[in-house]
Simulated assay, not measured.
Amino acid sequence: MQSQELERVARQIRRRDLQAVFEAGAGHIGGEMSAIDIMTALYFRVLRIYPDQPRHPERDRFVLSKGHTACALYVTLAKRGFFPEEELSTFLQPGSRLNGHPNCNKVPGVETNTGPLGHGLPVAVGMAKAAKLSGAGYHTYVMTGDGEMQEGSNWEAIMAAAQFALNNLTLIIDHNRFQQGAALADTNDIAPLRPKLEAFGWDVSEIDGNRMSEIVPALEKRSERPHCIVAHTNKGHGISFMQDRVDWHHKVPNREQYEIALAELSESN
């Protein structure tokens, strides 16, 4: 897919994500909206995947380390054909496999369980190292939140990836500048991120993470070193009253807000 088509698909995913959160009465919609453009580019352009064979050994791997934004991943996986889109209506319902955090034992296309922050990147480093040891050709991508980068386990993984020269690993940091309850700048401000990753021996790209024309080439870039994409995004992207508002980290729109958001995310925009 080219950028214009990817943007159309991303709008569809945002609308379905909004619907799922509204109907479930729970979710992490702000961080989902900031990450959906990147997930769309991955699943509809970049990743080598086999929806009818989700454990195909030659598949590329994607780890959603910021696992609380699972709903966006579920909508993307369903739209890509990993499971029926009708199942999205069961999100967070009793007995549903579409839980608040992704489970690789239940949901096709989920590579590893995530939720506790600071776990996904270390697991992805292990996946990339395993590919090097076995001679496999798959590439591993992992997305973290910027608040999540305050976790020390991530920096241990970053050191290991550089030591092992894991040029088959791409880290995407969803740098939307907000975490639960506060702005990143008001908690443990680790920005700017680029010089820190470069100091640890990584190749770093810095992009607008809500612009397809910048997302795609960054995801497709290959380097001699592990690659980090610092993706500058907007919390609640695409919805005016949510954008860059910390209270929409974990909040559900009422009926009026839902209708406004649906209109703003319409394909005519």
Rank of each mutant, 00 (worst) to 15 (best):
D247C: 10
A26L: 08
K66H: 08
A165K: 15
L98I: 00
P217E: 11
P84L: 07
I49D: 02
I207Y: 08
F62V: 06
L133F: 15
T233M: 01
H119R: 07
Q12F: 05
G236N: 01
T140Y: 02
E23Y: 10
Q19I: 14
A70D: 09
L133M: 14
V204P: 06
M39R: 05
K79L: 15
H175F: 09
G181H: 13
I172D: 01
H139G: 11
F91H: 02
A70K: 10
K132E: 06
A20N: 03
I229S: 02
I13P: 04
R61V: 13
S205L: 15
K221L: 02
A182W: 12
E220M: 10
N269C: 13
G145I: 05
Y138F: 15
H237R: 13
Q257M: 03
S89E: 14
S34Q: 00
I215V: 00
P54R: 02
N167K: 13
T112H: 07
W155A: 03
V75D: 00
E259Y: 13
A157Y: 04
H237Q: 11
P84N: 12
I215D: 05
R14L: 10
F22Y: 13
G145E: 12
L77W: 09
E148W: 06
M159I: 12
G31D: 07
I158S: 02
Y74F: 12
A130S: 15
A124V: 05
E85S: 00
F82V: 10
H119I: 12
F178K: 12
H237E: 06
L47D: 03
S153V: 04
T112N: 10
N254K: 09
I29E: 00
Q163S: 13
H250M: 13
G25D: 08
C104A: 14
I172K: 08
H232F: 11
L77R: 07
G120R: 10
A26Y: 04
M33L: 15
T90F: 02
M127D: 02
V252H: 09
M143F: 11
A130L: 11
L171H: 07
H139N: 01
S96T: 05
G209P: 03
P108L: 13
H232M: 11
N210V: 05
R225N: 08
M39C: 10
R80A: 14
E264H: 00
L77E: 04
Q4S: 15
Q180A: 14
I229R: 04
Y74L: 02
E256R: 08
N168W: 01
D208S: 05
F200L: 12
L121A: 11
A130C: 09
S153H: 12
L197P: 12
F200I: 06
G181Q: 11
W248T: 01
S65R: 05
F164Y: 15
G100F: 08
D60T: 07
H139C: 08
F83W: 04
V9G: 11
L171V: 04
Q2V: 12
V246M: 10
Y74P: 04
V123C: 09
R16K: 15
M159A: 14
F83K: 09
A161H: 00
A78L: 07
L92W: 12
G152S: 02
R14T: 11
V63Q: 10
L117R: 03
Q150H: 08
A165Y: 01
Q257L: 03
A35E: 07
G25N: 05
